[in-house]
């Protein structure tokens, strides 16, 4: 930004969109902490990554391996998207009409990019599961998938390297007692399988 545009001190009244964080499936699967920032009913909800960063929205690219239409009155799609480390569980319901219509047109297997909000669910067995409510899902190519792996590796390494120095990572250390070595290896393995 050019510094000639000086901060006039007036906060923009328009709301600021939350950035989409990059995370591998193997890390997202371990998420157990969900919280809200602020008291308001409309204040954004966040999950906390074990490597120490909050996320209200995530961006993932992987292979759509399975999709299933569910529900009678309230139609929704459930889908599985795989990355080199594991599987993301994607949902697209009538509250996300764009994503639902896009989902209807995509046939597995294909590379897809998903933008969505991660949420924690408690299953009937009492086990927690993280699923992603898709805001949009679109077909992409292998190159986009490769760029995403590098992008996500970079983001994850950055979190690992600054672990203990940020508010969110201090919180993650308390809540998860994170073993960084596991996540470093996850990143290494994800990158290593690309090397052909």
């Amino acid at each position: 930004m050019p510094a000639v545009e000086r901060d006039s001190g007036q906060a923009s009244p328009s709301f600021e969109r939350e950035a989409a964080k990059r995370v591998f499936a193997a890390e997202l699967r371990e998420v157990r902490v969900q919280f809200k920032e602020g008291e308001d009913r409309k204040s954004p909800g966040f999950i906390l990554f074990p490597t120490g960063e909050r996320a209200n929205r995530i961006f993932i690219v992987g292979t759509l391996t399975e999709k299933e239409r569910r529900g009678e009155q309230n139609l929704y799609y459930q889908a599985r998207v795989a990355d080199p480390t594991g599987t993301f569980y994607i949902m697209a319901g009538s509250y996300q009409p764009d994503a639902m219509q896009q989902m209807a047109m995509i046939e597995p297997p294909s590379f897809v990019a998903v933008i969505g909000k991660p949420t924690l669910f408690e299953g009937q067995s009492g086990a927690t599961r993280v699923s992603v409510r898709a805001e949009s899902i679109s077909v992409v190519d292998a190159e986009t998938r490769n760029i995403w792996i590098l992008d996500t590796a970079r983001s994850t390494l950055k979190r690992i390297e600054s672990f203990g120095n940020t508010e969110d990572s201090k919180r993650a250390r308390e809540q998860y007692n994170t073993d960084l070595q596991i996540y470093r290896k996850m990143v290494y393995d994800a990158l290593a399988q690309m090397k052909i």
């Binding site: 390494l157 470093r184 290494y188 990158l191």
Partner: peptide, 9 residues
């Protein structure tokens, strides 16, 4: 970049 990130990881 892949090589650099592999080194870093």
């Amino acid at each position: 970049e892949l090589a650099a990130l592999l080194n870093r990881a």
